[in-house]
Nucleic acid binder design. Structure first.
Length: 234
DNA sequence: GCGACAG
DNA sequence: ATCTTGTCGC
Protein backbone atom coordinates (compact mmCIF):
# COMPACT_ATOMS: atom_id res chain seq x y z
CA UNK A 1 0.00 0.00 0.00
CA UNK A 2 1.25 3.47 -0.85
CA UNK A 3 1.48 6.40 1.47
CA UNK A 4 -1.33 8.17 -0.43
CA UNK A 5 -3.67 5.20 -0.32
CA UNK A 6 -3.15 4.88 3.39
CA UNK A 7 -3.88 8.52 4.11
CA UNK A 8 -6.92 8.51 1.82
CA UNK A 9 -9.09 6.72 4.35
CA UNK A 10 -7.24 7.19 7.60
CA UNK A 11 -9.51 7.16 10.65
CA UNK A 12 -10.04 10.36 12.62
CA UNK A 13 -11.91 8.99 15.59
CA UNK A 14 -10.88 6.45 18.19
CA UNK A 15 -13.96 4.36 17.55
CA UNK A 16 -13.22 3.88 13.86
CA UNK A 17 -9.52 3.34 14.54
CA UNK A 18 -10.33 0.45 16.86
CA UNK A 19 -12.67 -0.96 14.23
CA UNK A 20 -9.83 -0.87 11.69
CA UNK A 21 -7.64 -2.83 14.10
CA UNK A 22 -10.34 -5.41 14.68
CA UNK A 23 -10.74 -5.87 10.94
CA UNK A 24 -7.08 -5.94 9.89
CA UNK A 25 -6.05 -8.26 12.71
CA UNK A 26 -7.24 -11.25 10.69
CA UNK A 27 -4.57 -10.53 8.06
CA UNK A 28 -1.60 -10.92 10.39
CA UNK A 29 0.53 -13.93 9.47
CA UNK A 30 1.92 -15.71 12.53
CA UNK A 31 2.99 -19.07 11.10
CA UNK A 32 6.18 -18.02 9.32
CA UNK A 33 9.52 -18.30 11.15
CA UNK A 34 10.77 -15.08 9.57
CA UNK A 35 14.17 -14.21 8.13
CA UNK A 36 17.13 -15.73 9.99
CA UNK A 37 19.13 -13.21 12.06
CA UNK A 38 22.58 -12.13 10.94
CA UNK A 39 21.90 -12.31 7.20
CA UNK A 40 20.41 -9.93 4.64
CA UNK A 41 19.04 -6.55 5.60
CA UNK A 42 17.32 -5.30 8.74
CA UNK A 43 15.53 -1.96 8.78
CA UNK A 44 14.76 0.29 11.72
CA UNK A 45 11.92 2.82 11.70
CA UNK A 46 11.16 5.60 14.15
CA UNK A 47 9.25 8.88 14.38
CA UNK A 48 9.74 12.27 16.05
CA UNK A 49 7.08 14.92 16.66
CA UNK A 50 6.55 18.63 17.08
CA UNK A 51 2.96 19.06 18.16
CA UNK A 52 3.31 22.86 18.17
CA UNK A 53 4.22 23.02 14.50
CA UNK A 54 2.05 19.99 13.65
CA UNK A 55 5.08 18.24 12.22
CA UNK A 56 6.07 14.59 12.19
CA UNK A 57 9.33 13.20 10.82
CA UNK A 58 9.96 9.51 10.19
CA UNK A 59 13.16 7.68 9.38
CA UNK A 60 13.95 4.27 7.90
CA UNK A 61 17.50 3.01 8.19
CA UNK A 62 18.60 -0.17 6.43
CA UNK A 63 21.43 -2.09 8.09
CA UNK A 64 23.49 -5.01 6.90
CA UNK A 65 22.39 -7.63 9.43
CA UNK A 66 25.83 -9.23 9.60
CA UNK A 67 27.95 -6.11 10.15
CA UNK A 68 25.29 -3.63 11.33
CA UNK A 69 26.73 -1.15 8.82
CA UNK A 70 24.29 1.39 7.39
CA UNK A 71 23.24 0.45 3.87
CA UNK A 72 20.69 3.17 3.18
CA UNK A 73 18.72 5.91 4.92
CA UNK A 74 15.39 7.54 4.12
CA UNK A 75 13.25 10.20 5.80
CA UNK A 76 9.78 11.63 5.33
CA UNK A 77 8.00 14.59 6.88
CA UNK A 78 4.27 15.07 7.27
CA UNK A 79 1.45 16.45 9.34
CA UNK A 80 0.31 14.75 12.53
CA UNK A 81 -2.57 12.46 11.57
CA UNK A 82 -3.75 11.26 14.98
CA UNK A 83 -3.26 12.12 18.66
CA UNK A 84 -1.36 9.80 20.94
CA UNK A 85 -3.82 7.37 22.44
CA UNK A 86 -2.52 4.24 24.21
CA UNK A 87 -3.47 1.32 22.00
CA UNK A 88 -3.76 3.48 18.89
CA UNK A 89 -0.13 4.47 18.40
CA UNK A 90 -0.05 3.04 14.90
CA UNK A 91 -2.48 5.66 13.62
CA UNK A 92 -0.06 8.36 14.69
CA UNK A 93 3.10 6.80 13.28
CA UNK A 94 2.30 4.67 10.26
CA UNK A 95 1.53 7.16 7.46
CA UNK A 96 4.90 8.88 7.74
CA UNK A 97 6.77 5.64 8.39
CA UNK A 98 5.34 4.13 5.21
CA UNK A 99 6.41 7.23 3.29
CA UNK A 100 9.96 6.84 4.61
CA UNK A 101 9.98 3.14 3.66
CA UNK A 102 8.80 4.02 0.15
CA UNK A 103 11.82 6.28 -0.23
CA UNK A 104 14.19 3.31 0.01
CA UNK A 105 15.79 1.69 -3.00
CA UNK A 106 16.77 -1.36 -0.95
CA UNK A 107 14.45 -4.17 0.02
CA UNK A 108 14.02 -3.55 3.76
CA UNK A 109 14.15 -7.17 4.93
CA UNK A 110 12.91 -7.46 8.52
CA UNK A 111 11.50 -4.19 9.88
CA UNK A 112 12.12 -3.43 13.55
CA UNK A 113 9.51 -1.13 15.13
CA UNK A 114 9.77 0.99 18.25
CA UNK A 115 6.70 -0.33 20.08
CA UNK A 116 4.55 -3.44 20.11
CA UNK A 117 3.08 -5.95 17.71
CA UNK A 118 1.01 -8.80 19.17
CA UNK A 119 1.47 -7.38 22.66
CA UNK A 120 -1.49 -5.06 22.35
CA UNK A 121 -4.97 -4.81 23.91
CA UNK A 122 -6.50 -6.06 20.64
CA UNK A 123 -3.41 -8.01 19.54
CA UNK A 124 -2.70 -5.53 16.74
CA UNK A 125 0.01 -3.07 17.67
CA UNK A 126 2.18 -0.84 15.50
CA UNK A 127 4.41 -3.67 14.23
CA UNK A 128 1.42 -5.85 13.29
CA UNK A 129 -0.27 -2.97 11.49
CA UNK A 130 2.85 -1.93 9.58
CA UNK A 131 3.43 -5.54 8.58
CA UNK A 132 -0.07 -6.02 7.24
CA UNK A 133 0.03 -2.77 5.23
CA UNK A 134 3.46 -3.41 3.70
CA UNK A 135 3.57 -7.20 3.61
CA UNK A 136 7.03 -7.06 5.19
CA UNK A 137 8.15 -9.19 8.14
CA UNK A 138 8.06 -6.99 11.25
CA UNK A 139 8.80 -7.18 14.96
CA UNK A 140 8.17 -4.78 17.84
CA UNK A 141 10.80 -3.89 20.43
CA UNK A 142 9.43 -1.60 23.13
CA UNK A 143 11.15 0.17 26.00
CA UNK A 144 8.22 -0.12 28.42
CA UNK A 145 5.94 -3.00 29.44
CA UNK A 146 2.74 -1.04 28.72
CA UNK A 147 -0.04 -2.79 30.65
CA UNK A 148 1.61 -6.19 30.59
CA UNK A 149 3.27 -8.09 33.41
CA UNK A 150 6.40 -10.20 33.68
CA UNK A 151 8.77 -11.77 36.14
CA UNK A 152 12.18 -10.15 36.19
CA UNK A 153 14.50 -12.08 33.82
CA UNK A 154 17.86 -13.28 35.20
CA UNK A 155 20.66 -10.72 35.13
CA UNK A 156 22.76 -11.93 32.16
CA UNK A 157 22.19 -10.59 28.66
CA UNK A 158 20.00 -13.00 26.71
CA UNK A 159 17.78 -13.93 29.65
CA UNK A 160 14.06 -13.80 28.98
CA UNK A 161 10.72 -13.97 30.75
CA UNK A 162 7.24 -14.25 29.26
CA UNK A 163 5.42 -10.96 28.77
CA UNK A 164 1.90 -11.68 29.94
CA UNK A 165 -1.58 -10.34 29.39
CA UNK A 166 -3.26 -12.28 32.14
CA UNK A 167 -2.03 -15.81 31.49
CA UNK A 168 -1.45 -15.34 27.77
CA UNK A 169 2.11 -14.88 26.53
CA UNK A 170 2.03 -11.91 24.16
CA UNK A 171 5.78 -11.32 23.96
CA UNK A 172 8.99 -11.57 25.93
CA UNK A 173 10.95 -9.40 28.29
CA UNK A 174 14.47 -9.76 26.92
CA UNK A 175 17.61 -8.63 28.71
CA UNK A 176 19.94 -7.14 26.11
CA UNK A 177 22.59 -5.89 28.57
CA UNK A 178 23.76 -7.52 31.78
CA UNK A 179 21.80 -6.20 34.74
CA UNK A 180 19.98 -3.54 32.69
CA UNK A 181 16.21 -3.15 32.33
CA UNK A 182 14.98 -5.51 29.60
CA UNK A 183 13.31 -4.58 26.33
CA UNK A 184 9.88 -5.95 25.45
CA UNK A 185 9.79 -7.98 22.26
CA UNK A 186 6.70 -9.06 20.39
CA UNK A 187 5.87 -10.52 17.03
CA UNK A 188 4.59 -8.26 14.29
CA UNK A 189 3.97 -9.98 10.95
CA UNK A 190 5.49 -13.09 9.33
CA UNK A 191 7.94 -13.76 12.17
CA UNK A 192 8.11 -16.06 15.19
CA UNK A 193 8.80 -14.83 18.71
CA UNK A 194 12.01 -16.87 18.76
CA UNK A 195 13.21 -15.17 15.59
CA UNK A 196 12.19 -11.77 16.93
CA UNK A 197 14.25 -12.29 20.09
CA UNK A 198 17.23 -13.63 18.15
CA UNK A 199 17.22 -10.55 15.89
CA UNK A 200 16.94 -8.27 18.89
CA UNK A 201 19.97 -9.89 20.48
CA UNK A 202 22.01 -9.71 17.30
CA UNK A 203 21.11 -6.00 17.02
CA UNK A 204 22.24 -5.16 20.55
CA UNK A 205 26.00 -5.79 20.73
CA UNK A 206 26.63 -2.56 22.65
CA UNK A 207 23.42 -0.93 23.81
CA UNK A 208 20.09 -1.81 25.37
CA UNK A 209 18.14 -0.71 22.31
CA UNK A 210 18.53 -2.33 18.88
CA UNK A 211 21.00 -0.61 16.57
CA UNK A 212 18.17 -0.22 14.06
CA UNK A 213 16.08 1.81 16.50
CA UNK A 214 19.06 3.90 17.61
CA UNK A 215 19.98 4.81 14.04
CA UNK A 216 16.38 5.57 13.07
CA UNK A 217 15.83 7.63 16.22
CA UNK A 218 18.87 9.81 15.56
CA UNK A 219 17.91 10.25 11.91
CA UNK A 220 14.27 11.22 12.44
CA UNK A 221 15.31 13.79 15.05
CA UNK A 222 17.66 15.35 12.52
CA UNK A 223 14.92 15.33 9.89
CA UNK A 224 12.48 16.97 12.31
CA UNK A 225 15.00 19.70 13.18
CA UNK A 226 15.44 20.50 9.48
CA UNK A 227 11.69 20.56 8.93
CA UNK A 228 11.28 22.93 11.87
CA UNK A 229 13.85 25.29 10.38
CA UNK A 230 12.06 25.25 7.05
CA UNK A 231 8.72 25.87 8.77
CA UNK A 232 10.11 28.74 10.83
CA UNK A 233 11.75 30.34 7.82
CA UNK A 234 8.61 30.18 5.71
C1' DG B 1 -16.03 6.39 38.45
C1' DC B 2 -10.66 6.42 38.83
C1' DG B 3 -6.12 5.35 37.44
C1' DA B 4 -2.82 3.31 34.08
C1' DC B 5 -1.24 3.48 29.67
C1' DA B 6 3.79 1.51 23.44
C1' DG B 7 5.49 6.59 21.47
C1' DA C 1 7.05 11.60 22.44
C1' DT C 2 8.96 16.14 24.71
C1' DC C 3 10.78 19.68 28.26
C1' DT C 4 16.37 19.59 29.91
C1' DT C 5 22.51 20.09 33.14
C1' DG C 6 25.25 18.09 35.22
C1' DT C 7 26.97 14.02 36.79
C1' DC C 8 28.14 9.20 38.47
C1' DG C 9 30.54 5.32 36.59
C1' DC C 10 32.96 1.96 33.37
Amino acid sequence: MSHRQILADWPTEERSARAVQDELRARVVLDEPGPPPGTGFVTGVDVAYDDECDLVAAAAVVLDAATLDVVEESTAVGRISFPYVPGLLAFREIPTVVAALEGLDSRPGLVVCDGYGLAHPRRFGLASHLGVLTGLPTIGVAKNPFTFTYEEPAAPRGSTAPLLDGDEEVGRALRTRDGVKPVYVSVGHRTSLETACAHTLSLTPNYRQPETTRRADALCRRALAEAQEDATRA
